[in-house]
């Protein structure tokens, strides 16, 4: 029997298509156009081919920022994902305590990025900030403005404070969606808490963890405002990540051509890593 398909539903996605075209596709095409030209002003531009790509790919500043960026995103994922799962497992499941903990966890997510940076800038200072003062008063020589290790520690701590809640809330929703029958079966088998986590909770959390890992990777890989406000990329260039290097190039030096080439390389890295994450986890799911 021939099945009649009604393709009129495709028209319903037309508004989204137009919106994405205007907000993403057209700007991306413009960036590609800029990346092959030396732009002086709106009417003066010279075609330079792959010259900016060559210059950017051989720039040691890009290499350093890229390494710092991967280390930062790796640390963020290694800390926030297990911590978020642990927080979600410890959260109360019923009553007012559950509502209260959900509200408390959501608070850091509601604070704008620049405010988070300012909070930690003050909080970490050794003269007036509670955190910096407390560390120095117990004998730890801590100064995020002059010591690169302290600056990294503070930027990481700030990101963990700001975004672990997101992973915890995602995992909490995933845990609440597991049917009680699984736990009953585990109790009948006298499964240990670890076995319940390993064979019931963790597999059932896989889809929310994919979303959590992807969101946290992409967001941490594109981080700009918080370290910019907190450390300004310093001391030296120790906390200058990719987006900050890009902004310096595009806005600080007005090098639109190299900045466009840099953004496209940046885009390709994010696209590749996100695709690898998504494909590996979704195919793992299929093979099970």
């Amino acid at each position: 029997m021939n099945k009649t398909e009604n393709n009129k539903a495709w028209f319903l996605v037309l508004p989204v298509f137009l919106l994405v075209a205007f907000s993403a596709v057209i700007p991306l095409m413009t960036v590609v156009n800029y990346s092959v030209q030396d732009i002086f002003d709106q009417n003066t531009a010279y075609f330079v081919g792959a010259e900016w790509y060559r210059e950017v790919l051989q720039d040691p500043r890009l290499h350093d920022s890229l390494i710092r960026q991967f280390i930062f995103s790796g640390c963020v994922l290694l800390i926030e994902i297990p911590l978020g799962i642990a927080v979600a497992l410890m959260m109360p499941t019923k009553g007012k305590a559950a509502s209260l903990s959900l509200i408390l966890l959501a608070i850091p997510l509601l604070i704008p990025w620049n405010v988070v940076g300012t909070i930690w800038q003050v909080f970490g200072r050794e003269d007036i900030g509670l955190f910096g003062w407390a560390l120095n008063s117990i004998g730890i020589d801590y100064n995020y403005a002059s010591n690169p290790g302290d600056a990294w520690f503070t930027v990481l701590l700030m990101d963990v404070w700001h975004w672990t809640s997101l992973v915890a809330l995602l995992c909490y929703s995933g845990l609440r969606a597991i049917p009680e029958a699984y736990y009953q079966a585990a109790r009948i088998d006298r499964a240990s808490k670890w076995a319940i986590f390993r064979y019931i909770q963790l597999p059932k959390l896989k889809s929310v963890l994919v979303i959590g890992i992807l969101l946290r990777f992409m967001d941490s890989f594109m981080i700009y405002t918080e370290p910019f406000v907190l450390t300004g990329g310093g001391p030296g260039n120790s906390t200058t990540f990719l987006s900050q290097t890009l902004t310096k190039m595009a806005i600080g030096q007005f090098d639109l051509g190299p900045a466009a080439a840099f953004s496209l390389i940046y885009f390709l890295i994010v696209l590749l890593v996100s695709w690898l994450f998504f494909t590996s986890i979704s195919h793992l799911d299929k093979s099970e």
Binding site: M29, T30, N33, V36, Q37, I39, Q42, A45, F47
Partner: peptide, 10 residues
Amino acid sequence: MSWMAWTLPT
């Protein structure tokens, strides 16, 4: 479309 700075190769 001139603001998009089109070139023939792109």
